[in-house]
Structure formats: C-alpha cells, structure tokens
C-alpha cells in the first residue's frame, strides 16, 4: 500500500476507490485561473471490469497499490486480447480496453521492451518505453523550402494506420521517433 498524489497519476497506476482496486487507463490534468487543479481519470474497476470517469483534486492523496512489474515484449493479437511475453516466454494477455492509449503503437514486428503491470497475478496494464520508433506509411509530399520543422502535416503509421502530426520534411518510408507519453512526433531517424 502507498500514497499516490492524484496529480501524479499515470496510465497503469492502481488506486483504491471505494474499497476496490481500479486501474488508471488515462489521466488528464487541468488547471486554470482560480479553479482547483483537477485530474480527470478514466479508470477500470479490477473487481467488476466496469469503466468509469472520475475526478480528483490534483493535490488529493489517494491510496495506491504496490504492483508487480515485468519487462515484456509484444507478441501478437488474439481478439479481444493483446499478448505480451516475458524473457522466460510466459505469455500475458491484456484486453484491448485496458491498452486504450497504446494500441495505436502496437505492431507485430515491434521489439520495444514494455513494462507489464500485474495485480494479484493478473496482467492489467502496459507502459511503452518513453520513446519508440515507427515507420511512416503515408504522408503528403515534402513541402519544398521548409526545413525548420515548424510546419507540420499529417502522417499515417505503418500497420496501425494511426495518424499524427509530423514535420513537413518527413517522407513516406521514414522512421520517426515518437514520445509515447504525449503521442507526439519528436524527430526523424532516417
């Protein structure tokens, strides 16, 4: 058992709510003007699998749960679950809903080392590395003359078809680095 500050909640954290463990699927911080800083949380109750949206003051102290974590790699998709495998080739299934924010980056050939979280032996969430590299399947032709990176355009990733904004100089087939926490393009690798 541990104390979790609401403002520091991240996907994959497990907290106790009304005596039940809930896993955070998404946490969104909001603050402006005189309003209290708040965190809107999309969470799944691990006992009932019910998903709900909650809100906390950012400075609220919540009861966290110490969890077991393992390094794994992505293996394959078997509807409705994604399967991850550890160094001893043990397989762990996690349903699509629990991976809501990262499925857009899961590809069959990915070698990224992910962190799988377990609650009472059950795999409940996955955190990707801080940055990952993915291939651009399609983007509009390069806008000539601009190499500053300030002008952006849409690009579609190979396999997942996820669309994101990239610098104008990025081309089809380029490998790009993506920040998995923000989901934003960081730089071109090739």
């Amino acid at each position: 058992m541990s104390v979790k500050i609401a403002g520091e909640l991240q996907s994959g954290n497990v907290i106790i709510v009304e005596n039940s463990p809930v896993v955070v699927l998404k946490a969104q911080y909001n603050k402006s003007g005189r309003n209290a800083a708040v965190v809107k949380v999309r969470a799944k109750n691990l006992m009932t699998n019910r998903i709900s949206e909650l809100i906390f003051k950012a400075d609220e102290k919540l009861e966290g749960v110490m969890l077991e974590r393992k390094e794994c790699t992505y293996s394959y998709y078997s509807a409705p679950n994604h399967v991850f495998v550890d160094a001893d080739f043990n397989e762990y299934e996690i349903d699509e809903e629990s991976l809501s924010d990262i499925t857009k980056f899961l590809t069959s050939d990915m070698t990224d080392v992910c962190e799988v979280t377990f609650y009472e032996g059950r795999s409940i969430s996955v955190v990707l590395p801080k940055t990952i590299i993915r291939e651009v399947e399609y983007t509009e032709p390069v806008a000539r003359g601009d190499t500053s990176g300030k002008i952006t355009k849409a690009a579609i990733l190979k396999e997942t078809k996820h669309e994101l904004q990239v610098s104008a100089f990025v081309e089809i087939g380029d490998k790009i680095e993506i920040d998995t926490e923000t989901g934003e393009f960081k730089r071109r690798c090739t």
Binding site: I16, E18, N19, G33, K40, L54, I55, E60
Partner: peptide, 28 residues
C-alpha cells in the same frame, strides 16, 4: 467550482470524486 468557459470544464462537470474507503462521493 469557479466559473470558466474553458472546454475541459464540460468534460469534468458532474463527475464523481470517490474516496478510498468510504461510499461518500464528492461531485464536481
């Protein structure tokens, strides 16, 4: 809460803020 015209307010309005070990819920 205080009045604000920001978009995020619509998403947070009326949400429950449950407690760890109590059935009491605070609504924003």
């Amino acid at each position: 809460e205080y009045l604000s015209a920001e978009d995020w307010v619509e998403e947070c309005h009326g949400l429950a803020s449950p407690q760890s070990h109590s059935p009491l819920k605070k609504y924003f």
